[in-house]
Design a protein around this nucleic acid. Structure first.
Lengths: 216, 216
DNA sequence: GATCCGATGTGACCATGTCACAGACGGCAA
DNA sequence: TTGCCGTCTGTGACATGGTCACATCGGATC
């Protein structure tokens, strides 16, 4: 997505609005850029054109958990909380790859919400999806064992069978602790489900992992 | 809230729309009625006029956790997930007191969303608020100890100092297990923060409990 | 090779969840 | 009153998970 991204990202918008969006500057951000952190005010409504942004939560102890990721064509719903309600951010958004995004300024966002049905539908749908995902995440965190969440994370990161991530990164993703992940991985390795090397994990038994991830 | 509830619940709506909403039948439901459960399709957009509805999640093991409560004048956001996206419910909504509510049928809901700015603003705001609350809940469940969540629950249920609830009910509220709640309460009692009787808990040290609830 | 740093392994200990029961209490019927 | 029953609460034993303190290890750099 790049020049002319608006038509693809917001199907059904009329031509003048598409032109307005396409005219917005596109920001190119290197991997590792922090888009916003807890308590900050929204600059506008962010639409990701390429790359990937992850939004995560950090607890008092320093433990982290991934809330959700934003892929190309998706918008950063978290940024709408500040635009629509008065809720401050509680999460932190960071680019995990080189990323290009457009920022719809608050006034234009509000105008589009008012006059464009398709735009509204898009925003609402994204909202509903995130809410649903967050509920599922809450359910997994509250009720399932680390092993199931870890298996799910491994499958998400390397559906082909190879995951390049440290134990600490995996822990931050599933909201656990590094040591716990190390021990779980060792246990999975003993059972032949994975192989471990420094910085990467080989998934040796994808069906077995899927089973673990779903059972909980 | 009763006859003429719409003007109060949706400030800024124009007269014809208020009349349409006021004309909807009001349902009176006894405490303990189940409004919807996991996987069901939304009947419409529910607005609570009096009473209280609690939405909670149940894990495979049977453990429960309270997602949020809906008070008079608020709407059941969960029901919009089905109306706007195609996400099924994942929670279960139950009246905890005798409750009266109006159900806005899906077609009227969609029409109002299209043509009424104030209605949209209301729905969006409610959405943003729930999302923010859910995020905070996730943070508490993922990162704070049971003791802090329990103290918070006690303060929520009995800000005056008396809580009428069983240990099992408290456990369901905070997403823990009955035995754990029993033991935590006993520990709090030993420290003089609460007194326990069958079916109710006396909060002896409100500032102390507030401290516990906030520290995590 | 010597050194440094991030990644990983380990043991101890506490908090929490689960299971299996044992009492304890309150209401109700005989 | 007495006995019964269902619910609430208490307890011990054990598995899992989180935290802390270190030990090791592997690679990169000098």
């Amino acid at each position: 997505m790049g020049a002319g991204w608006a038509a693809a990202a917001f199907a059904g918008l009329d031509a003048p609005d598409i032109a307005r969006l396409d005219a917005l500057p596109v920001h190119a951000l290197p991997a590792g850029t922090r888009l916003f952190g807890p308590g900050e005010q929204a600059q506008g409504f962010a639409v990701i054109l390429s790359g990937r942004v992850e939004v995560s939560l950090t607890g008092a102890s320093g433990r982290e958990i991934l809330l959700y990721a934003i892929e190309p064509g998706q918008s950063c719903i978290q940024s709408t909380l500040g635009l629509m309600g008065d809720e401050p951010y509680t999460g932190e958004a960071i680019t995990v790859r080189d990323t290009r995004l457009a920022l719809i300024p608050a006034p234009l966002f509000r105008a589009l919400m008012d006059r464009s049905g398709p735009f509204r539908a898009q925003v609402f749908h994204a909202f509903a999806t995130r809410m649903s995902e967050m509920t599922q995440l809450l359910e997994r965190v509250a009720f399932t064992r680390v092993e199931a969440r870890l298996a799910q994370a491994l499958l998400d990161l390397g559906p082909e069978g190879l995951v390049t991530a440290t134990h600490a990164e995996l822990a931050a993703r599933i909201g656990s602790a590094r040591e716990v992940v190390s021990r779980r991985l060792e246990a999975l390795a003993r059972r032949g489900l994975v192989g471990t090397e420094r910085g990467r994990i080989l998934l040796r038994d994808l069906p077995g992992l899927r089973q673990l991830a779903s059972v909980g």
